[in-house]
Amino acid sequence: MTNPMISVFDGHNDTLLRFAMQTASTPEALFEKGDGKGHFDLPRARAGGFTGGMFAVFPPPRDMPDMSRSMNGAAYDMPLPPPLPHHGAGDWTARMVAILLRLERAFPNDLAICRSAPDIRAAMASHKIAAVLHIEGAEAIDRDLMMLDVLHAVGLRSLGLVWSRPNIFAHGVPFRFPSSPDTGDGLTEAGRDLVRGCNERRILLDLSHLNEKGFWDVAALTDAPLVATHSNVHALCPSARNLTDKQLDAIAESKGVVGLNFATCFLRSDGQMRADTSLDDMVRHLDALVERLGEDGVAFGSDFDGAIVPAEVGSVAGLPNLLDRMRQAGYSEALLAKIAHGNWLSLLERSWA
């Protein structure tokens, strides 16, 4: 008997950046047909049951480090790029937001930008990809939060204060292994204002990439559930990017959600970025997340187009392979549906209300 296709709403991808950096083809062509590269395009999304997710706007550093080469030793501490100037971040942010807007305009039957939970449910019911605009690294936002209003009007509904480099709002965690996430100072006063501004506008706050002090600063300020869209379990993989048991307990207490990051360096016990990583490593983290957060607190946050993922997944088309492995590990169909999409939809309904 063939297993049913389960719809997947994913907490994080970097596809807009891949499209923005590709000069050989247009974003519309890359979305419609793909180019055999990366992790995401419309045909592979349909094949994998991908029905929506957070589409990240990530302003890249001038010189993007080669993470696949830097994160393969027994221990590493990858140097972070310097802070990104506000004007440069603004240019990249506008470019990626425009790409998402153009994809919606070019493919009205295949993709919809969603600004509410009912929007997501309507898009999924119409077999459209439900795209939520997300910011990963708030360098494009000014101290007075004027750009936050502009982005919110366009459709911004989820925001991570930092990528791993520092900015005027907060300090991120380095790509360091093994390491605690307690790596520096917490939120600045501007960061506290940004948290309050997001709460007022009902913009989800993403704690992934934020260091531990920043995590606790947000937890003390926010009136919304705590969310890490793409993070894993520090007890199983002691990367600075992963969450400690104490952090996971705080997310559980707030009735928040953690999306499993598919990046192999945050899955493997040796912290290495290698495609020959077993799906069993993914299930190991899912088991630990379910144990700590409960069945309502766990989801997917793939990091497609932003990391090396296990070869057995390979791309968005390989999502059924992970779901089948979860079945083999004893996950019920009801729990699979929760982790694949139900928990994100419930969380967004509560966070955006």
Rank of each mutant, 00 (worst) to 15 (best):
I99F: 05
P61H: 01
Y76L: 07
T93K: 03
G53D: 00
H87G: 05
P83T: 11
L80Y: 12
M71S: 05
F58G: 01
M64K: 11
G53K: 04
P79I: 04
P83W: 14
M71E: 14
P81I: 03
M96G: 05
P82S: 05
H87V: 11
P61D: 03
M67Y: 15
G90A: 08
F55W: 07
P81C: 02
A98M: 07
R95M: 01
P60F: 07
P59K: 06
A98C: 06
G90V: 05
L84V: 13
M96D: 07
F55L: 03
P79L: 05
M67N: 04
P83R: 15
T51R: 13
T93G: 04
P85G: 01
M64H: 06
A94M: 13
D66H: 09
A98D: 11
L84M: 14
L84Y: 12
M64Y: 07
H87F: 11
A75V: 15
V97W: 05
T51L: 01
A74G: 12
V57A: 12
F50I: 12
R69W: 12
P61M: 04
M67T: 11
W92T: 09
W92H: 12
G73L: 01
G52T: 08
R62Q: 14
V57I: 15
L80V: 10
G90R: 09
N72P: 06
D77M: 10
M54D: 00
G52A: 02
F50D: 11
P61R: 02
P59L: 05
P61G: 00
P85H: 01
G73V: 03
D63M: 02
A94V: 06
W92S: 11
P61V: 03
S70K: 08
G53F: 00
D77A: 09
R95H: 14
M64F: 10
I99K: 02
T93C: 15
G88E: 14
